[in-house]
């Protein structure tokens, strides 16, 4: 073979038809990206800017109940009004501050509870035999497919004054008068741990399942007892799972509305509930919007951390 036949296409020789089809090809790719991109820009990103805008407006008795950011004076001069009063109001008002703190307290505590109970459950599933394992996993996922609302409702029946738990305790003679459990902070903890536990278990399971059992064997072989192996090898290697699971519980729990409303009644103040009430009952949109923006800022860091780990996990796989 002395020379390569010159039939390799180069830019100048490509026919117009080929060029057109190549353009069409790059265009359908563009279309595939374009449709969901525009959808998300319009219905996910844009709304946040509108909320931010409203949070900087004033309450007005009108529809919608807030002032315009941009006003035109009689002489045709545009003025932009940014009102930070709402934020000042939230910060200065003890009710809001305390509610934020209480929300964070409840969500952090629930996350820790989910981790304490979820970790051994996830580890137990990983360590189960090949026939039991899929069944257990299935049992963890199954509640996802039933109604969230009804899972919370189930606890109303258990925790109420004449509920199953009180009935049982009274019948066993342990107590004489029912213990108040429904409409307390305790009920909110139970509700959050109950409904969000799978979000903790599943990422932990996914993380643990990938661990090589021979690492544990290697540690034992090098003289490490099981407990020491757990703290020196297993626990450090499951930190990504712990972070992912904790954020999946912490973030939605902080903004939770249904559980504090149904199980906490009026006695447990969480920010999601305050926000909803501000919006729906008081129709004070600017303050509601500010409450939402502050909540978002509280959660932005955890969300970014979550996305970072999510990205790293998908790169690895």
């Amino acid at each position: 073979m002395t020379s390569v036949p010159d039939n390799m296409p180069n830019d100048k020789q490509v026919s117009i038809g080929k060029r057109l089809s190549r353009m069409a090809q790059s265009n359908w790719r563009a279309i595939i990206v374009f449709i969901p991109y525009v959808w998300l820009l319009l219905f996910f990103l844009l709304p946040f800017f509108i909320v931010a805008k409203i949070s900087l407006a004033e309450l007005q008795i009108s529809s919608p109940p807030f002032s315009d950011m941009i006003e035109w004076t009689d002489s045709g001069i545009m003025t932009i009004r940014l009102v930070f009063d709402n934020y000042l109001y939230i910060i200065s008002d003890n009710l809001y501050f305390d509610t934020y703190v209480n929300s964070l307290k409840i969500s952090v505590t629930s996350t820790i509870l989910c981790l304490l109970f979820g970790y051994p459950i996830a580890y137990g599933i990983v360590r189960s035999g090949p026939t039991v394992k899929p069944l257990l996993l299935f049992a963890i996922i199954l509640p996802f497919w039933t109604s969230f609302l009804l899972r919370v409702y189930a606890w109303m029946g258990l925790l109420s004054d004449q509920g199953t738990i009180n009935n049982l305790l009274i019948r066993l003679g342990i107590i004489d008068d029912p213990i108040r459990m429904l409409y307390t902070e305790f009920a909110v903890y139970v509700g959050i741990v109950y409904t969000y536990m799978p979000f903790m278990i599943l990422p932990l399971y996914a993380n643990m399942e990938k661990l090589d059992i021979s690492l544990n064997e290697a540690a034992a072989d090098l003289g490490s007892r099981p407990t020491n192996t757990f703290f020196k090898v297993t626990l450090p290697l499951t930190i990504p799972g712990i972070i992912a699971g904790s954020l999946l519980v912490f973030i939605p729990a902080t903004g939770e509305y249904v559980i504090p409303d149904l199980l906490g009644g009026g006695n447990v103040q969480m920010i999601g509930r305050v926000l909803y009430n501000e919006f729906a009952r008081n129709t004070d949109w600017p303050v509601a919007a500010s409450v939402a923006i502050v909540l978002l800022f509280l959660l932005v860091l955890p969300i970014i951390v979550f996305q970072y780990y999510q990205g790293k996990a998908s790169e690895r796989s």
Binding site: V33, P36, Y37, L40, L41, F43, F44, L45, L46, P47, F48, I50, V51, I54, P64, L247, L248, I251, P252, T254, G255, E256, Y257, G272, L275, Y276, F279, W285, A288, A289, A292, L295, L296, L299, P302, I303, F306, Q307, Q310, G311
Partner: peptide
């Protein structure tokens, strides 16, 4: 784009709901 795809998974519903309503 990637950010907007993952964010709804963890965004508190209350914020998503409120922002869509004002939209």
């Amino acid at each position: 784009f990637g950010g907007m795809l993952v964010a709804p998974l963890v965004m508190p519903e209350i914020i998503t709901g409120l922002s869509l309503l004002v939209l």
